[in-house]
Design a protein around this nucleic acid. Structure first.
Length: 257
DNA sequence: ATGGTCGCGCAGCGA
């Protein structure tokens, strides 16, 4: 099974590139973030035309997540399990695809360390861990994919000095990620690649992409039984190039399933 | 050294 995740930064603007990418990357399951589309505006038929079922959870303007699958899509749940209020923000969507409990996540940015937005980000990560623990088993097939807005360690940041104090790299954010690891999730990309400067996001400004100034903040956190079946992992930098790119590259993961 | 770009939507905010 080929599982992919991509923060597309507006699916409306990016649809043609997403269709093109699906055409050559051929994911079985694709998690999308920052669709910026209300569910009524989601281009469901464009995905159906390519052979995918789709579930979406968006609010328009901001956020918005979706899962497209050509290997089945069942038991979709928007937001945190059992929390109707939190489901209003389009940041979390879970569904079962070919026996894997897949979640597409868009973690809040946090803005600046110590701000109320930062505290909300930490709380959101705690709720995500609780959601995963409440709805799945670490011995089962679980994949939590998306834009975590956290760079797991110093290798995941273009400049080591940025790895101290700032948002995305703070100890508190990394500790929240560690809690998910402690529950039983594995950073799938790191299982395949140990090198530094393998980024998934680059700021649009100042030619950061071409200067290799980025971060690895898009992750697939998978349970050990799924990690044991991982055969290939790639960040598709090609998809960050050319006309009208997202500021994030898509990632893909092959599992022997 | 500084500021730099997008998307949304029509001003300025969020990233």
């Amino acid at each position: 099974m080929r599982l992919a995740t991509w923060n597309v930064n507006s699916l409306k603007v990016r649809l043609a590139r997403v269709e093109e990418w699906i055409g050559y990357a051929q994911p079985d399951v694709l998690c999308l973030q920052e669709t910026k589309l209300a569910d009524a505006a989601f281009p469901t038929m464009a995905f159906q035309a390519l052979g995918y079922e789709v579930a979406c959870h968006g609010e328009g303007r901001w956020n918005g997540v979706a899962i497209a699958s050509r290997v089945g899509l069942e038991d979709a749940e928007a937001g945190f399990h059992g929390d109707a209020a939190a489901a209003t923000e389009g940041r979390l969507l879970s569904a079962t695809c070919a026996g894997v409990r897949v979640s597409s996540v868009y973690v809040p940015n946090g803005r600046s360390v110590g701000s109320e937005h930062f505290e909300a980000k930490l709380e959101w990560l705690r709720l995500l861990r609780a959601h995963v623990a409440a709805t799945s088993d670490p011995e089962g097939l679980v994949a939590v994919c998306g834009d975590f807005n956290v760079a797991p360690d110093h290798r995941d940041v273009w400049d080591a000095s940025r790895a101290h104090g700032g948002t995305h790299v703070s100890g508190a954010e990394r500790a929240a990620l560690d809690e998910m690891v402690a529950w039983g999730l594995v950073d799938a990309f790191r299982q395949q690649h140990s090198g530094d400067r393998l980024f998934s996001w680059w700021d649009y400004r100042a030619g950061d992409f071409h200067k290799h100034k980025g971060m690895r903040i898009d992750l697939a956190m998978v349970s050990r039984p799924l990690a044991d079946r991982l055969t290939f992992a790639l960040i598709d930098r090609q998809a960050r190039k050319g006309k009208l790119p997202s500021d994030h590259a898509p990632l893909l993961f092959d599992f022997d399933l």
